[in-house]
Amino acid sequence: MRNTPLLTSTPTHAVKDLAELYAIALVQAECAATSYDRMAASLTDDSDHTKEPVRCVFETLREREQDRVAEIRLRRSTLARKRSVSEVPPAAIENLVPEQELTELADSSLSTPFQAWAISVRHRQRAFVFWTYVAAYATDPELRIAAETLAREALTDADLLRRERRLAWRAERAAKGTDADERNFGEMSSAALIESLLLKEIARWAQVLMPPERERLLSSSGVATADLAAIGAELPGLPDGDTPAEVPRRVVRYAEQLTSMYLDESDRATDQAELELAQTLASSSIARLARLRAFANSLRH
């Protein structure tokens, strides 16, 4: 399971309209294009041709992001004139291509095309997570559909880039004479256990809530009332030294773990069916996590 989240901070700013949504998407695409362009330029050295394959990858990535910029501008141009321009709050922008990742790769004498493609996959995975959060927070159907479209496009891009990464990985492993299909199993088998623990903690949480808040929790978590009642009847008391305040924190922590597991599994998938299942689970898990966080925060105010 990944040690750090894909996003440095999860989106908490509710996008208010399509103009703002496209403004955010445009800034993100422009920043990515600029970052990839700088990387390609930094790897241009007439005296050192070993980094030429890596430079070519970043040139390709820059061109892809430039195409994305043009596409987003086209979509924004279809909005009514008064809705086409929007100021983007700085807090709403997530850097999808962190400079630290690029700097580490540029400074390494052992950088490879596989590492470059891996950065691009993480970039589009971050976009998928970001826009899934935006869709989860959206109250306007039109806005939610637009955010879901951007999330779905990010998934498609990640799939294409993942294939390039896999080809680069195979080429590297073949050059070293090692197995290119080594995999680390076990994540999905433990996800079922975490899902069970999450369900039990949600049932514990529901027991201390008033009916209106209990219904909101059920809606946030996607748990049916009948299932909750059955689980609640079998729950033991809180562990020694535990307090009711710990329960919401465990709920969010388990939801975070599951999101990370499903994202990791989609990254390791080797066939289309496995990939689609993991991506569906990841999308649902991200939306659930966003709702549970929002619900927990609402109870604190």
Rank of each mutant, 00 (worst) to 15 (best):
R2Q: 11
N3P: 09
P5M: 03
S9Q: 09
T10V: 06
T12Q: 14
A14K: 15
K16D: 06
A19I: 08
Y22C: 06
A25Q: 02
A29C: 10
C31Y: 01
A33L: 02
S35G: 10
S42Y: 05
L43G: 08
L43V: 04
D46Y: 10
D46L: 13
S47C: 06
K51D: 04
T60M: 10
L61S: 05
L61I: 14
E63C: 04
R64C: 01
R64I: 00
V69I: 06
I72L: 10
I72N: 07
I72R: 05
L74M: 09
S77F: 01
R83D: 15
A91P: 02
I93L: 14
N95A: 03
L96I: 14
P98C: 11
E99G: 06
E101L: 10
A106K: 13
D107I: 03
D107G: 09
S111A: 15
T112R: 15
T112S: 15
Q115M: 14
R124L: 02
Q125D: 14
F128M: 12
V129Y: 10
W131M: 02
Y133G: 15
A136G: 12
Y137Q: 13
E142S: 15
E142W: 02
L143I: 10
R144K: 15
E148W: 01
E148D: 13
A151K: 07
R152C: 04
D157W: 07
D157T: 10
A158I: 02
A168R: 05
R170T: 13
A174N: 12
K176H: 11
A180R: 02
D181A: 13
E182I: 15
F185W: 13
L193T: 13
L193S: 10
I194L: 13
S196I: 00
I202R: 04
R204P: 01
V208K: 08
L217D: 01
L217Y: 03
S219F: 00
G222K: 07
V223C: 06
T225M: 01
A226N: 07
A230L: 06
I231N: 02
L235C: 05
P236A: 11
G237W: 08
R250N: 12
V252E: 14
R253M: 07
R253Y: 09
L258D: 11
T259F: 01
T259E: 14
S260Y: 00
M261P: 00
M261V: 14
M261H: 14
D264G: 14
E274I: 03
L275Q: 11
E276Q: 11
E276G: 02
Q279E: 12
L281S: 12
L281H: 10
A282T: 11
S285V: 03
R293H: 04
N297K: 15
H301N: 11
H301D: 10
H301S: 12
H301Q: 13
